[in-house]
């Protein structure tokens, strides 16, 4: 299990990195934390001829809230930095709560959020969390950039909307409006394993306690992270009672399309969605109080 040979470039600024990618195209892959790419290379499932290593691009290791309260996460920002940031924990608790379920500290000490999103494993927690938080992704290329909503980014298992020359340079997570509560729950076989089912819930209550906005995103629930939109819509206007959650869960179970794995049959995954959706919603509702 040794990686195939490759040419290694370790540029120190973004422009150089993007130029290298433009030059080598599909032959090249960006290397961020390497916690998904390197295992794939060790198995020789991935054999990029060129690695553009971003670890020396200091500018990409950024984490800050902007004036609008949007969290901006640079491509080289490691999980470790996010999960230890008190301000992130206060303003975007969903992110930190879900991060605790991602692998183990040894992986999170090197792994990056952007790298995980580009890997686009539908069982991974972070893509679903990005959908729940309505994140936007800034995709850069040597001659321009575009911003894409998270929901348009994930196209299928391990497939994204990134063009050959593009880099996911920054993740933008908008602030949660007051009155919002969030919750993340998953069932994995062991701590740190990919979820057999995971649910991210975001609920906002209006002044009189009724739900005014809801988002529900699930991982391990289909070929991409899945938004349960009908389930979420059914909650708007309700008082967020157990019955409302049960009704939403029934809708969510019908909306998702789990693919099954060695660990869980699709039927069991649906069953888990039915169990976890109400629990996650209850958690979010309680926190939205």
């Amino acid at each position: 299990m040794k990686p195939a040979p490759f040419a290694w470039h370790a540029p120190e600024d973004l422009a150089a990195a993007l130029a290298l990618k433009a030059q080598h195209g599909g032959e090249a892959q960006f290397l961020a934390g390497g916690q998904s790419l390197v295992p794939a290379m060790n198995f020789r499932v991935a054999q990029p001829a060129v690695l553009v290593d971003l670890n020396r691009v200091a500018a990409l290791d950024s984490l800050a809230f902007d004036a609008e309260g949007t969290l901006r996460v640079g491509a080289m920002c490691r999980y470790r930095r996010i999960e230890r940031d008190a301000e992130v924990a206060r303003r975007l608790p969903l992110l930190v709560e879900a991060l605790a379920e991602v692998a183990h500290p040894q992986i999170r000490n090197r792994g990056t959020l952007a790298g995980n999103l580009c890997h686009a494993d539908p069982a991974s927690e972070m893509p679903a969390v990005m959908l729940a938080l309505e994140a936007r992704f800034r995709l850069c290329r040597h001659d321009g950039e575009r911003v894409l909503p998270a929901r348009d980014f994930f196209l299928g298992p391990l497939a994204t909307a990134l063009a050959e020359e593009e880099m996911l340079a920054e993740i933008q997570i908008p602030a949660l409006p007051p009155g919002t509560g969030t919750g993340f729950l998953e069932v994995a076989r062991r701590r740190g394993d990919y979820a057999m089912m995971g649910v991210a819930a975001v609920l906002r209550r209006g002044p009189e306690g009724r739900c005014v906005a809801a988002r529900l995103a699930l991982c391990s629930a289909g070929p991409t992270p899945m938004l349960a939109e009908r389930a979420a819509a059914s909650l708007v206007g309700t008082r967020l009672t157990a019955e409302d959650f049960a009704a939403a869960a029934a809708l969510a179970v019908a909306e998702i399309d789990p693919m099954g794995s060695v660990q869980a049959s699709p039927a069991y995954q649906r069953h888990l969605a039915g169990v976890l959706v109400p629990r996650a919603l209850a958690l979010a509702a309680e926190r939205a109080a």
Partner: peptide, 23 residues
Amino acid sequence: EHGVCGACTILWDGAPVRSCLAF
């Protein structure tokens, strides 16, 4: 050599990481 077992854990600037997942 795929980042699961932890046998290769070393400290990298003081933080534990998998040495099989870095060049």
